[in-house]
Computed example of a mutant assay.
Amino acid sequence: MSKVSELPKECLWRIEKEENTYAVNAMCQRIQLESDGESEFQPGHGDVLEVTNNGKVICLHAGASSSALIFVTNQCNSNCIMCPDSVKQRTRQNTITIEYLLEYVSLLPTDLTHIDITGGEPTLLKENLPVLIEKALDQAGKAEILMLSNGRSFAVRKYSQLFYPFADRKFKIEIPIHSASGEKHDFIAGCQNSFIQTIAGIHNLLDGGVEIGIRIVVSKLNYTELNSIVDFIHYEFPDIKYINLMGMEVMGNAWKNREMVWEELENLKPYLQGVLVRCFKWGIEPRLYNFPLCLFDQKYWYNYRKSISDYKIRYFEDCEKCREREQCGGFFASTFHHTKYKVRVQ
């Protein structure tokens, strides 16, 4: 028997609770765990754990959750002006290997309903990325897999073709378009020619039947031109079925550049609601993420998604009186401390 903190550190472990509690690794090694009432961390069934060299236990996946996150890398080939990560975070050495990622995926529950693949920029895995996606699809056959990418690497048609086999699987990629102007898109993405590369990448993926969704991160730099961005998307990519309108998390680059990118939520409202109508006109499904529900007129609530991770959500004191609180995604902790927005109790 062993304590969780004493498990071998050269591999990851999944917790299995039956009459007793066991830790199982990817090689099917099985170790019975003893009760450790003094530990603050009590593992649950299905948890995937990493034990560091100093005995710290890191929960990589909570077994009680029906969704999982695959964090591929902290690094990125863009430098978005409103990115919630800092330049320091995105440029530090990446220590996550493909072997580590495949081991992690092999320990995930097989009955997951959703998996997110994110970074950084996942395509920096290059040819290993399709291998990882295939592993995830095989591990959790009923799960929908969503990958977030800036889309630039897919401008190389030969690379984009590696993802064509996923066209008939439950897999999709969401890619941001910051502006209908190439110059402004490049400025927001912090990288010259990123607009041309992203547009080419989306075309290449759509040519292979890969499902693509578009993300628009709404900031002071683009909120007044949301209609023109949607018009551009409609004419350039008639096969696009949905667009996600995303509120900012005011951290990292976004905090550093807050005077340039932050716009108060109340000022965004008419433009956000206006672009919803524009999407309806073009037969595109719009979705609202990372905003408080009460920002919008009730007739638009069916486009709203509660999306902020639990540990990041904050609510104002008045929110506790609201009958819609459970349906509302609240505020990012960083936004909560920065905004002057006055909530509307429903």
Rank of each mutant, 00 (worst) to 15 (best):
G120Q: 03
T91W: 04
K269Y: 07
S219R: 00
Q89L: 10
I133Y: 04
M27R: 15
C328I: 00
I199N: 06
T95L: 11
D231P: 01
G201T: 00
M27L: 14
S66C: 09
L245R: 04
G37S: 12
F331M: 11
N290C: 12
H45G: 10
E16K: 13
D231K: 12
M246S: 02
E263T: 10
A136G: 06
C191G: 05
N150T: 05
Y311I: 12
H178P: 03
V210C: 09
T21S: 11
T198G: 05
V250M: 15
A62K: 13
Y242K: 12
P270W: 08
G329Q: 02
S67T: 08
H45S: 11
D85W: 01
I96N: 06
H178C: 12
H338I: 05
C76R: 06
F296C: 10
E326Y: 07
A200Y: 03
S307H: 09
R325H: 05
A167H: 05
Q161G: 01
E127M: 09
I202L: 06
E249Y: 01
H203K: 15
C76K: 02
S153E: 06
A189T: 10
V51L: 03
Q192V: 09
V345G: 03
I202Y: 07
R323Q: 14
N77E: 11
L245M: 10
N53F: 09
L132W: 07
E320F: 10
S39T: 09
W262R: 03
R258L: 05
E264F: 03
F316W: 08
L137A: 03
G208V: 00
N257M: 08
V87L: 12
E324T: 10
Y304I: 03
K256F: 11
M260R: 14
S334T: 10
S66Y: 11
M82D: 06
K9W: 06
R278K: 15
E134V: 03
K340Y: 05
N267T: 10
I233F: 01
I81Q: 05
N204K: 01
L265W: 06
V218M: 02
T118Q: 02
E285I: 13
D318T: 13
S78G: 03
E34Y: 07
L162M: 13
F195T: 00
L288I: 14
G213I: 00
A333K: 10
K88D: 15
E121I: 03
F154Q: 01
G213T: 10
G55N: 11
N20F: 08
E34D: 11
S179P: 04
M82K: 03
N25H: 08
E16H: 05
T52M: 09
I173R: 00
C294D: 14
W13G: 01
Y235Q: 12
E326L: 09
N74M: 04
V87F: 12
Y311K: 13
L125Y: 03
I58H: 15
G63W: 09
Y311Q: 12
I58V: 15
C28H: 13
D231H: 14
V57P: 02
G55E: 12
G141D: 06
E225V: 12
R325F: 01
W13Q: 04
D318V: 13
S307Y: 06
G252C: 11
W13N: 07
